[in-house]
Design a protein around this nucleic acid. Structure first.
Lengths: 226, 226
DNA sequence: GACGCGAATTGACCCCGATCAAATAACTTT
DNA sequence: AAAGTTATTTGATCGGGGTCAATTCGCGTC
């Protein structure tokens, strides 16, 4: 892990992100003050569950995986966060302990902000508080979605749902490139890699073609029906 | 469903709750102004997924079940909330649409507050915003816990974990009464009722006795090991 | 273009938990 | 207390997905 300072493209990523974009520019700038940037190799651990953490993290590039460990060492993904997402914010209001492990799922650059300062700001500035509230709602809903999908859908259905979430409305056929290794996708969907693989081949009969990371859909309706 | 006004015991439940207790009394009182109370029979639907809702709900007594519906009509519980809990708050910041169905899991009394007013208050008053943030963090963590347990634990392990969460630290043997029907517990744990039943009988060999709603533990360590 | 290594697929097997059906238990009502 | 519901348990069966082992594929390197 190496630590650096914010570059100007970093600032762009930050200011364009879901969270900072809804803040008045000066407020956003104030938060950026004192940000620390660090790089991590794939598989590096950023923090561990129950670690005391006094920072909030922002993905500048790459991918983080948040997961919990079972007694037997098995891992369960809670979330997979791409560029522009924030993590570690819950901890700020929850005893300052991480609720999960955070690991680089690929080469990763993160910015971190002192949570004390951010919390202070949130207490003084309702814009910041609003932004935090919206962030937490959004993340909460994502976790809920995940839980509901786990309980309601089979593996092929979850994969279909994932693919459809990448299909712009109206198109009946399209293709896209997976934003990460199948490995990671499997974890995100709560599946073993083998199960993901089998799910893809089940979906072949519904017009899904997989070649490397490229996914191609021939018939959107068929997928929705699945 | 019948609608009423707040009784004085209702006020007590509200003011003692996790959310309101951390607010200055006058602020809390201000929110209570204009609360509407309604009663619901077991199985009544309070609101449906995707309904536009402009209220935040508070459980005065009884139990609500939040769940999503699958295409095939199957139900997946997202949360089961007892007296003192708030629900429908996410919607306030998420297009004003409910993210799940809310159903009375037993005779239920709820108070509702206009979300517009609450949101306004949160924007003006950082105490309210802080309380909301903490609420959302707490709920977020609960959902995360649920997701992780689903992915990491078998049915008997989930039940053991549930029982242990009711065991005060230090005691090695103790007993308690389930706060709701096994039916509901099964849903909360993401199990079919039959699976819950079987899980209980598996745990018998680890010193768990079940008689009606009474649960008795002989050996805490044995349960933790499970 | 050949090589090498980690990622992904495929096959075989097994276990957990869902589902259906039937029996029993626990409540309500009268 | 008897009858009628509604929950819960138990048994039997089945399917989804996890795990292990063996290939095969894809991609970066030389």
């Amino acid at each position: 892990m190496k630590t650096l300072r914010l570059t100007s493209t970093d600032r762009t990523v930050l200011l364009d992100s879901h969270f900072f974009a809804r803040l008045p520019r000066p407020t956003a700038e104030a938060i950026l003050e004192g940000a620390i940037v660090s790089t991590h190799e794939e598989h590096d651990i950023v923090f561990r569950q129950d670690d005391p953490i006094d920072h909030v993290f922002f993905v500048l590039s790459g991918l983080v995986r948040l997961y919990r460990l079972g007694k037997d060492g098995r891992e369960a993904d809670i979330a997979v966060l791409p560029k522009g997402e924030i993590f570690g914010a819950n901890a700020m209001f929850l005893e300052h302990r991480a609720t999960a492990n955070a690991q680089a799922a690929e080469a990763l650059i993160v910015a971190r902000f002192e949570s004390g300062k951010l919390r202070q700001l949130a207490a003084e500035n309702t814009d910041v508080a609003q932004a935090l509230i919206e962030l937490l709602c959004r993340h909460g809903k994502m976790t809920e979605d995940c839980l509901a999908e786990d309980r309601l859908l089979t593996a092929p259905q979850r994969v279909a749902s994932y693919i459809l979430s990448h299909c712009p409305d109206g198109l009946s056929s399209f293709s896209f490139r997976l934003p990460f290794q199948k490995n990671v996708l499997a974890g995100k969907l709560g599946l073993a890699p083998e199960a993901l693989s089998r799910a893809f081949s089940t979906l072949r009969q519904s017009g899904v073609t997989v070649k490397g990371r490229m996914i191609e859909i021939r018939d959107r309706q068929a997928l929705e029906r699945f």
